[in-house]
Design a protein around this nucleic acid. Structure first.
Length: 545
DNA sequence: TGGGCTTGCGCC
DNA sequence: AAAGGGCGCAAGCCCA
C-alpha cells in the first residue's frame, strides 16, 4: 500500500494507492490507523512531516522521501533517459526547506504542532511519485536504484528518530572534562586558567607579550622574529621546528580548539535536558554521506566523548565497520584476491600476507593513497605493488580517476552518480598557463571521482546497515515506544551507537552484526565479501576506541 | 555591524 | 614541480 501525503491550502491530503485524495483532519491518528497495514508513506520531505509524528509518539516503518529521491534520480546515470531527469529543473530540484526548528534553545517548540508559520505547500506529490516510479522501472538496473531510494528514505526516518531521541550527554561530565584540561569555567570573555598559563609561556618564550595566538598572521610574524621560518601555522608544520616555544604553542592550539569548538559555550547551546540533538542532513554530502548542521556532530572530538554516558541501567553499543572503504572497493571491483585478503578478519594483515607490501602500515597507507589519489611519499611508492596483487580493485579506482579527468560521470554501487566535471577539458588556443591550470583541475576532479565511487558506495552500505539495525531493533518488541527499547542514537559514516537497556545488550550486538551481513548482501549479492563489525559495549562513548 | 573570505583543525 | 577524498565550524581579517 502506498499513501501519498501532501499539504495544500485546505490542509493535509492523503492519496491511498490510486483512490481519490482525502482530507486528513488528525494526521497522527490517521497514520496510526493505516500504519497497521505497513504502507509506504510518500511525502515531499521527511523533516517536514516526521518530527511532528514522533512528537505524538507515532513511528512509521517505511517512507519515500520525494525530495531526496528526486535528487538521486535527477543525476543518476541509471535513469538519465527518464522523463524526470530530462525535464527542466523544477520545484523538486530546490534545496530542502529549512527544518522547522533545530536550535536547541527552541527545544520547547521543537516538536510543537502549533507552528505559527504558513504550512508548506507540497504540490504534485502524487505526480512526482509516479514520475519517480517510472524512472526506476525504466532503468537498466531497477533493483539497484530502487534499493538506493529505499535506503536513502530509511536514512531520513532514522535521522528524524535520532534527533528525536538525542544522544545522551551529561553536562556535568563534560564540564569535568573541560575543567580538568582547561581549568574551571571562567567568566565570559576570559581565558580559562590552564589555557592562559600555556599562553603566558608562549608569549614569554617568543618575547611577544601582546601576541594574539589565534591570529595566524600575527603568530607567523612572532615566529619569524625568533628565527623560525614557516609558511603556515599549522600544527603539523610547527611540530617540525626546534624551539622551546613550540611545545607550549602546540598545547595552546589544542586547548584553544577544544574551548572554541566544544567548550562551555557549545555545551550551553547544544545540550538540553541531557541530550545532544544535532540536525542530521541525509544526503547532505555530494557522495551520499550525511552532513549535520549545527553542533558539529560529525566532528565530535575524542576528548569529549566521555560525556556521552548511557542512562542508568543502559549501555552504549558502539559498532563500527572495520576497514569499510577498502572492503567496499574490493567487493565492487569483484577483486577476488582482495576479498580473500579481507576474509580472515584484518584486511590489511591479509594484504601483507599476500606479499603485496611488507607491513600492515604500508597496506593501510597504500590503500588510502589508492582511494584518495595520493601519489607522493610512501603511499605513491606502494601503489605499483598493490596494483600487481589487486589489479581489479586498483584498476577500478584508476578508471574512475581517468573518467573524472575526462569530465565523465561515475557512479556508486547502487547508482548514485557524480556531478559532471566542469572546466576539465582542453581548450583550443589556451596559453601554457591555462593548460596547466586546466590539467590541475582535471587531476583534482579525477581524485574526486576516484574517491566518489568508494566513499559513496560505503555510504550506501552504511545506510543499508543502519536501516537493517533499525528494523531489527524494532522487531525485538514492536509494542515498545522508540526510546523505551534499544534505539539508534548516533551515526558517524561507518559507525553507529545504540542506546540499549542492559539486559538486551547481547541480543542487540548480534542484531548489529547480522545487519552488517545483510547490508553486504543488499549491495553485492553473492559476492562473498566480509564486512566485519567491531563492537564495544560501554558506559560512555569515550571508552570505545 | 555584518557578510564573505581565509586559515586551521576536528571527524570519517 | 607538485600532485590525498568528503565535510562543519570558529576565529581573524577585510571591506562595504
Amino acid at each position: 500500500m502506498i499513501i501519498v501525503l501532501a499539504r495544500a491550502a485546505t490542509g493535509v491530503s492523503a492519496t491511498i494507492d490510486h483512490e481519490p485524495a482525502i482530507v486528513v483532519a488528525d494526521l497522527p491518528a490517521f497514520v496510526v490507523e493505516h500504519e497497521r497495514s505497513t504502507p509506504r508513506w510518500v511525502w515531499d520531505d521527511t523533516r517536514s512531516w516526521y518530527p511532528q509524528l514522533l512528537a505524538a509518539r507515532v513511528r512509521v516503518d517505511r517512507c519515500f522521501d520525494l525530495r531526496l529521491c528526486h535528487a538521486i534520480l535527477r543525476n543518476s546515470q541509471l535513469t538519465a533517459e527518464s522523463a524526470l531527469a530530462t525535464a527542466a529543473p523544477g520545484p523538486w530540484d530546490a534545496p530542502a526547506e529549512a527544518p522547522r526548528s533545530v536550535r536547541p534553545e527552541r527545544a520547547g517548540t521543537l516538536f510543537d504542532l502549533a507552528d505559527d508559520r504558513e504550512p508548506v505547500h507540497s504540490p504534485g506529490a502524487v505526480a512526482e511519485f509516479r514520475l519517480q516510479q517510472s524512472a526506476v522501472a525504466a532503468s537498466a538496473e531497477p533493483g539497484r536504484i530502487g534499493r538506493l531510494l529505499a535506503a536513502e528514505s530509511a536514512g531520513a526516518l532514522i535521522a528524524s528518530e535520532m534527533q528525536f531521541a538525542g544522544l545522551p550527554w551529561r553536562a556535568d561530565a563534560h564540564d569535568a572534562i573541560l575543567s580538568s584540561l582547561l581549568g574551571p569555567r571562567p567568566r565570559d570573555g576570559e581565558r580559562p586558567a590552564a589555557l592562559q598559563a600555556v599562553l603566558d609561556d608562549v608569549r614569554t618564550l617568543l618575547e611577544a607579550p601582546d601576541l594574539n595566538p589565534d591570529s595566524p598572521e600575527a603568530l607567523l610574524r612572532a615566529l619569524g622574529r625568533v628565527g623560525l621560518q614557516v609558511k603556515s601555522t599549522r600544527s603539523w608544520e610547527l611540530r617540525e621546528l626546534d624551539h622551546p616555544a613550540i611545545a607550549p604553542l602546540l598545547e595552546y592550539k589544542k586547548l584553544a580548539r577544544l574551548l572554541a569548538a566544544n567548550g562551555w559555550h557549545w555545551l550551553d547551546t547544544w545540550v538540553v535536558d541531557g541530550r545532544f540533538r544535532p540536525d542530521y542532513v541525509p544526503g547532505g554530502v555530494i557522495t551520499g554521506r550525511w552532513a549535520t548542521s549545527g553542533g558539529g556532530a560529525l566532528q565530535l572530538p575524542k576528548q569529549v566523548r566521555g560525556a556521552v554516558i548511557a542512562d542508568p541501567g543502559c549501555k552504549l553499543v558502539v559498532a563500527d565497520a572495520s576497514q569499510l572503504e577498502p572492503r567496499i572497493l574490493a567487493a565492487m571491483a569483484g577483486d577476488r584476491a582482495m576479498v580473500a585478503a579481507g576474509s580472515a578478519g584484518d584486511l590489511y594483515a591479509g594484504i601483507v600476507a599476500s606479499g603485496a607490501v611488507a607491513t600492515r602500515d604500508q597496506a593501510k597507507v597504500g590503500m588510502l593513497s589508492a582511494m584518495y589519489g595520493g601519489t607522493t611519499g610512501e603511499g605513491g611508492r606502494l601503489l605499483p605493488g598493490l596494483a600487481r596483487a589487486y589489479p581489479q580493485a586498483i584498476g577500478m579506482v584508476e578508471d574512475a580517476a581517468r573518467a573524472g579527468e575526462r569530465g565523465e560521470v561515475v557512479s556508486t554501487r547502487l547508482g548514485r552518480s557524480s556531478p559532471p566535471g566542469r572546466d576539465v577539458g582542453y581548450v583550443e588556443g589556451a596559453t601554457a598557463d591555462e593548460v596547466n591550470r586546466t590539467r590541475s583541475r582535471s587531476r583534482a576532479w579525477g581524485r574526486f571521482t576516484r574517491n566518489f565511487i568508494v566513499q559513496g558506495s560505503a555510504a550506501e552500505w552504511a545506510l543499508c546497515w543502519m536501516a537493517s539495525v533499525r528494523r531489527r531493533l524494532r522487531d525485538l518488541d514492536e509494542s515498545r515506544w522508540l526510546t523505551d527499547g534499544p534505539h539508534l542514537v548516533f551515526f558517524l559514516h561507518d559507525e553507529i551507537v545504540v542506546h540499549c537497556p542492559e539486559p538486551e545488550v547481547e541480543r542487540v550486538v548480534a542484531e548489529v552484526r547480522a545487519a552488517a551481513v545483510e547490508a553486504g548482501q543488499l549491495l553485492f549479492g553473492a559476492i562473498p565479501a566480509q564486512f566485519p563489525v567491531t563492537v564495544a559495549v560501554v558506559d560512555n562513548y569515550g571508552q570505545a576506541k
